[in-house]
């Protein structure tokens, strides 16, 4: 049983949009608009994330709604991400080895979205919890995707080794 499970969900439909008019335009499509910058809301079969102040990512079947005619100040963002879902007991250790953001200090009830750099690659991260174990969704530019997955898998593999310091009973 691997310490960290990787699920590649790159093929899930998704769409993006940004601009000063984006929030109003999305609301008019009958989609819920996350109010706080860098937060997300669940959708049937997916989610909508607010990236920063004025950019949105919609994932799942609802993404098709973003094909609607544009309004002023609304700029479509073609999304061709490598998208992953990671979960497992050692996930926090993986994050500590690849990213300088303190994920454990986040309040998950506010549904935060984190735009940061992981293993040197720009990523969007949504941390979460599933079945009592930490999990997170990660999106990155697909041209970095192969290298990114190879690297994270390599780090995850090291974490499983009995000789790795995180398996020595050393308190983290």
């Amino acid at each position: 049983m691997s310490a960290i499970a990787f699920e590649n969900v790159s093929r899930t439909p998704r769409a993006g949009v940004k601009g000063p008019g984006a929030a109003a335009w999305i609301a008019a499509l009958d989609l819920p608009v996350p109010r706080a910058p860098n937060s997300w809301l669940p959708l049937p079969g997916g989610l909508i994330a607010r990236l920063g102040l004025t950019e949105f990512l919609v994932e799942g079947s609802e993404a098709a709604k973003l094909a609607a005619p544009l309004s002023p100040g609304v700029y479509p963002v073609l999304r061709q991400d490598t998208a992953l879902v990671l979960h497992g007991a050692r996930l926090n250790e993986l994050l500590l080895e690849t990213c300088s953001v303190d994920f454990r200090a986040l309040n998950l009830s506010t549904r935060p979205v984190v735009l940061t750099s992981m293993a040197g690659v720009g990523v969007t991260v949504i941390p979460g919890e599933g079945g009592g174990m930490p999990c997170c969704r990660i999106w990155c530019d697909s041209t970095y995707g192969e290298w990114f997955v190879e690297t994270l898998t390599g780090v995850a593999g090291e974490l499983e080794q009995p000789g790795h310091p995180c398996n020595q009973g050393v308190t983290a």
Partner: peptide, 13 residues
Amino acid sequence: GRGFTPERRTPMH
């Protein structure tokens, strides 16, 4: 440590 030197590849790699 483990140095991170990201690599970009096109879809036709």
